[in-house]
Design a binder for these strands. Structure first.
Lengths: 118, 118
DNA sequence: TCCTTGTTTCGAAGTTCGTCTAATCAGACG
DNA sequence: CGTCTGATTAGACGAACTTCGAAACAAGGA
């Protein structure tokens, strides 16, 4: 298999491998990675992103972990502040969904400008 | 411009948005993101990945920061243990280079299964 | 061999992070 | 209006992380 996909990297080139990263830019990016640097938050994002309809209710998320509801809420807040997910209240429940722009931006970060030149 | 690139995602689909992430897998991935969740390490990786020849000497890296040599060495060790870079001693100096497989793997994580079908 | 330069390891201080319990806020329903 | 359920906020504690200085290790040259 080829593993080749046509993806929108969201920019012209990969900053991590191609451009110089200044200090403030590095700090901002580190904040996003810090939000992802936790097994619980990673699984939360995975559950939300792969949920049917693209969104998941908090009530479903809390049941998937052996953690208290406030702890889950805390992790969701971290992901929200990092711009990776958004939350919306509809009636009784709060629904979360992933922010595709943030994900494609991260994908572009690691995509080398010219992976395997002939 | 289209921002479209043909990239090797390193796998058939994006686990973060497509597959279920089990606990051990999430913990392993969180370790990688934890290694990247620091402005200094992010800039170190950026310097190494974008260096001419694909590799950078520690002596060059220490000069780019207002940090002591042991601190830089510590950060390089974290990146090395995360599998993002590799180090090799040639004579007096140690040279570091990025591991492209790790970067493409991360890129594939954030690539949605079908982003923008033609 | 000894000394000099470059790199890593070790131990410690200060800070940040993850988790909990208790309390508060937001809607829905009698 | 009162109450019940669901979700978040506030405060606190223990663990982990970042950074440093000092010391140990590796390689090269006088």
């Amino acid at each position: 298999m080829s593993n080749l996909e046509l993806v929108d990297t969201g920019r012209c080139c990969a900053p991590l491998t191609g451009l110089a990263l200044d200090e403030s830019e590095a700090a901002e990016l580190a904040g996003v990675f810090k939000a992802l640097a936790d097994p619980v938050r990673l699984r939360l994002l995975n559950l939300i992103a792969s949920a049917s309809g693209g969104e998941a209710c908090v009530c479903d998320l809390t049941g998937a972990f052996d953690l208290t509801a406030p702890t889950i809420s805390h992790h969701l807040k971290v992901l929200r502040q990092a711009g990776v997910i958004t939350g919306e209240r509809r009636g009784t429940w709060v629904y979360y969904r992933a922010v595709p722009e943030s994900l494609t931006r991260l994908a572009g970060l690691f995509t080398p400008p010219v992976p395997t030149p002939a």
